[in-house]
């Protein structure tokens, strides 16, 4: 079996640790490190700063949890849409204009009185970007990645959520390119609400499964 020859076994002391790695040639301060890399790549014509601005604008201002909230609200309001979403979420949300990077294969999982769904990526930070945008810091944190699969109820307690004892938790570890959207239970007292009004109750965390929707009123 070939060995992973890029592996580095470091025998230096703390001060020089990691100098085998090319990245150690960059400035240590993170902000300066990014700027240095951007500058080098720009000077060589390998990246275009205007393209970077366009990428940032996309995820800062255009794509975010409002997209997912609209999907959930429609699912609440329209049983046929809900059924189609559960059958083939990728196609259904693409019809609403939500598709692309980190949303190539989407599965919707619906909470029920019996089951609460919660999504994690223990190995990195996989997340349905076209529906929820860039993941929050806690989703990418060691604590969430380590604990969500083993003690989801204690993690939910960190978010102030307590589930009834007769409700099971199913945690989805996103280990492939399938991306998961939790469809929370529709809050009571919202009969007859418009899709737009319902969407206002859907929080980002409720679509990851670490939160519940806002209650009306």
């Amino acid at each position: 079996m070939p060995h992973d020859h890029h592996d580095h076994h470091d025998h230096h002391d703390d001060h020089t640790h990691g100098e085998d790695h090319p990245h150690a040639h960059l400035p240590p301060d993170p902000a300066l490190r990014v700027r240095a890399l951007e500058t080098i790549l720009t000077r060589k014509g390998l990246i275009d700063p205007a393209a970077l601005d366009a990428i940032i604008d996309t995820y800062q201002n255009r794509i975010g949890p409002k997209n997912g909230a609209l999907v959930v609200a429609r699912a609440w309001a329209d049983p046929e849409f809900h059924a189609a979403l559960m059958r083939d979420a990728t196609a259904v949300v693409a019809d609403m204009g939500f598709f692309g990077r980190q949303g190539e294969h989407i599965t919707a999982v619906a909470n029920t009185p019996q089951t609460h769904n919660m999504v994690v990526c223990t190995l990195c930070s996989c997340y349905p970007w076209p529906l929820l945008g860039i993941p929050p810091g806690w989703y990418k944190s060691d604590a969430y990645r380590a604990r969500a699969v083993r003690e989801p109820r204690k993690v939910l307690a960190d978010f102030g959520v307590t589930l009834p004892g007769d409700k099971a938790v199913r945690v989805w570890d996103s280990t492939a390119e399938m991306r998961y959207l939790v469809v929370p239970e529709r809050p009571e007292g919202t009969e007859g609400w418009s899709v737009e009004a319902l969407a206002g109750l859907v929080t980002r965390d409720s679509m990851i499964g670490t939160g519940l929707p806002r209650q009306p009123g």
């Binding site: 994690v120 223990t122 190995l123 810091g137 806690w138 944190s141 060691d142 604590a143 969430y144 990645r145 380590a146 604990r147 699969v149 083993r150 993690v155 960190d158 978010f159 102030g160 570890d173 965390d205 670490t210």
Partner: peptide
């Protein structure tokens, strides 16, 4: 790191 102990609270 899935299942690891000792990482502390998740901060919303």
């Amino acid at each position: 790191m899935g299942g690891r102990f000792g990482d502390g609270a998740v901060i919303p």
